[in-house]
Amino acid sequence: MTGIIDAERLRMALTRAVENGAGRGDHDLNPGMEATGRQRPAAVLIPVVEREGGLTLLFTRRSDDLPVHPGQISFPGGRAETHDDGPADTALRETEEEIGVHRRHIEVVGQLDLYRTRTGFEITPVVGLLTPPFDMRPEPGEVQEIFEVPLPFFLDRSNHERHSREWNNQMRSFYAMPYGDYYIWGATAGMLVNFVDVLLPRVDA
């Protein structure tokens, strides 16, 4: 797939996307660092916004007061609850709770491979198309900021960087996609790599 990705081409790509069964995860760049034990199900929404100038992706910056991953860039989402009707329901519920966008404004167009984190979460990335106008009300206890990034930035694979840090006396590698003052990395960046692979399949894949 080449050229401009618009809403229709997004729908077509996600319709054809088939989970490969192996899943994605932090272990993609760190063989041997797979999570052990029970995986806790979770889901995030990858919100694609139809702006007049083209598609954008919507992100949140987590509150600096949160005990886990404070200040990090993420998609709206969280762990599944027993009353949720599948991953899409989890992602839509969490999106409304975190940024105040009601599900009536979101067209679910598909989902990506499961993403497994080293902390034991099995995340289903759900792709949703948002058509303005819609109101946003960030939950102050969880969300510090909401911002958007043009989709073409992520479609350019030269922006898919690989960084490393020491963790538990081991060097851990991860994807990073710095954009201005925003440092998009870790699981969020890993899911974005998967998203781009769906939209722009590699000829050698």
Rank of each mutant, 00 (worst) to 15 (best):
Y182T: 00
G21A: 03
G53S: 14
S173M: 14
V196Q: 00
R157Q: 13
G23E: 01
T15P: 02
F195N: 00
H105L: 02
D6P: 05
P31Q: 13
V68C: 08
S74D: 12
F75A: 02
E50C: 14
G110D: 02
V149M: 08
I106K: 01
L58K: 04
D64G: 15
P178Y: 06
T82M: 13
R24P: 00
N159Y: 03
D89T: 07
G120D: 09
V203H: 11
F121A: 08
H105G: 02
E52H: 12
F154Q: 04
P201N: 09
A22R: 12
W185I: 07
E139P: 07
G186M: 05
G86P: 09
T117A: 06
A187V: 03
L10I: 05
A88I: 08
L45H: 00
H163Y: 12
G21I: 02
M12W: 09
P152H: 10
H27G: 03
E50G: 07
E34K: 13
D26L: 05
D204A: 10
I146T: 15
Y179D: 03
P140C: 08
L10M: 06
R165P: 04
G86W: 12
R137T: 15
I99K: 00
T124P: 01
V44F: 11
M136Y: 01
N194A: 14
L192A: 03
F154R: 04
P76N: 06
